[in-house]
């Protein structure tokens, strides 16, 4: 069982660059056809300052952490038995290629279902840009299969 003492644990903040090339590759990976997500000229023509970061990409950028699964090991979450149970984003302002995002995270809940056959760890992540403006928050729920 994941120790409940980890509720409230905060991670050290870290920065990640929003890179044009990564956004282009991401657009390819999800079959994106709207050029504001991969073509700078098209993005500018549509009134954006650069290539627009798509709605789920902040989750990916958070994986730019030097050791993205460190907190799994710290909490004792076994990677082979972990599944992504849920993901929620709250958006405050757009983000563009060339910006720098700062990620701060906190474990906000740990609970079990089905007599412990499933455990859940809930992590909140707060994202600000290089002007210290809130860009978005997200909440990730990891499910651990013990059964």
């Amino acid at each position: 069982m994941i120790d409940l003492k980890f509720i409230g644990t905060k991670s050290a903040p870290f920065d990640a660059d929003v890179e044009k090339g990564r956004l282009r590759l991401f657009a390819k990976a999800i079959g994106e056809t709207d050029p504001i997500y991969f073509d700078e000229a098209a993005a500018r023509a549509a009134g954006h300052s650069s290539i627009l970061m798509p709605p789920t990409f902040l989750f990916c950028l958070e994986m730019e952490h030097p050791d993205p699964y460190l907190w799994f090991r710290e909490l004792g979450i076994p990677l082979p038995r972990a599944l992504h149970g849920g993901q929620r984003f709250q958006y405050y302002r757009p983000a563009y290629a060339g910006e720098v995002m700062t990620f701060r995270s906190e474990i906000v809940d740990i609970y079990a279902k089905k007599n412990g056959a499933l455990e859940f760890v809930v992590q909140d992540v707060f994202i600000t840009n290089q002007r210290a403006e809130s860009v978005a928050d997200f909440r990730r729920t990891i499910a651990i299969r013990n059964g």
């Binding site: 992504h84 149970g85 993901q87 958006y91």
Partner: peptide, 11 residues
């Protein structure tokens, strides 16, 4: 995209 306020998904 700037019209999207929140996006909550359960897998």
């Amino acid at each position: 995209q700037d019209a999207i306020r929140s996006f909550d998904t359960r897998f």
